[in-house]
């Protein structure tokens, strides 16, 4: 078996020294895998991926990327090492042009390679190419999400962290985005995403972790989790009988 892209064990972390939000969370993501983290509000989902991205200080536990320990590495070095993170809100630089957003995505690359990748990205997303000199602030929610992902992909990352990628998107745009995410893992990269919309996330992922109050609760294959009536009742906000039925 190949080494997992991400191996996080017993993560304890929080925003201030005296208030921890994660109390020993463990997550693993294998190459080519899409993993969803679900759980109620305040479970620490966003904190977990911020800790993996280097934005939140890890007080205990260890994180390894491709088998190499990265615990405590500053965020900008993690980015250079192949970790890409797309936050839920403010995920593009609104005052910078679309092209400059892509320049930022490739800031750790050698200049020539960065320029080539920018042209590739613009070729892949004609919508961005048309507006390359305009400020990213003019884009719609879905377009911003696309730019944010394009920016994150500039480094050809090994691990892509997505915080609620479909928040605020229409159901159609969300489906489209999930399709795009599926395409990201082709070359052996891995995706770890946090989703509020648990059912959709499980439908579009390979495995899932259920987090509650800063600890792991349940983990397993996504379709098994979807089918599990108890999880549906507790964490997905469904009554056991109508797991595919209408919401109350």
């Amino acid at each position: 078996m190949t080494a997992p892209v991400l191996q996080a064990e017993g993560i304890v972390a929080g925003y201030t020294a005296d208030l921890m939000i994660l109390h020993g969370v463990s997550v693993e993501v294998a190459p080519g895998e899409i993993v969803a983290i679900i759980g109620p509000n305040g479970a620490g989902k966003s904190t977990l991926i911020k800790a993996i991205a280097g934005l939140v200080k890890v007080s205990a536990g260890r994180i390894a990327i491709d088998g190499r320990e990265t615990t405590g590495t500053p965020a900008h070095l993690l980015a250079a090492a192949g970790v890409a993170y797309v936050p839920q809100t403010d995920n593009v630089f609104a005052t910078l042009s679309i092209e400059e957003n892509l320049v930022l995505g490739g800031v750790t690359l050698p200049g020539r390679q960065a320029r080539a990748r920018i042209e590739e990205a613009l070729a892949r997303y004609p919508m961005l190419a048309e507006r390359r000199r305009q400020k990213a602030g003019i884009l719609s929610g879905g377009q911003r999400q696309m730019l944010a992902i394009a920016r994150a992909l500039m480094t050809a990352p090994r691990l892509i962290l997505l915080d609620e990628p479909t928040a605020g998107l229409s159901p159609m745009a969300a489906e489209e985005l999930f399709g795009l995410i599926r395409g990201l893992v082709g070359g052996g990269a891995a995706v770890l995403m946090v989703e509020q919309n648990a059912r959709a996330a499980l439908r579009h992922s390979d495995r899932g972790y259920v987090l509650a109050e800063g600890v792991n609760r349940i983990e397993g294959a996504s379709d098994a989790l979807l089918a599990d009536a108890e999880i549906g009742a507790i964490f997905l906000g469904l009554r056991p009988a109508d797991s595919e039925g209408l919401r109350p």
Partner: peptide, 24 residues
């Protein structure tokens, strides 16, 4: 320059600049 663009990025959103690989 990339440093200049990075500077404007840090001015707007330091965390996003950091995860993009900018050494703040």
């Amino acid at each position: 320059s990339r440093t200049g663009i990075s500077m404007r990025a840090v001015a707007e959103n330091p965390d996003l600049a950091r995860v993009s690989g900018v050494d703040v």
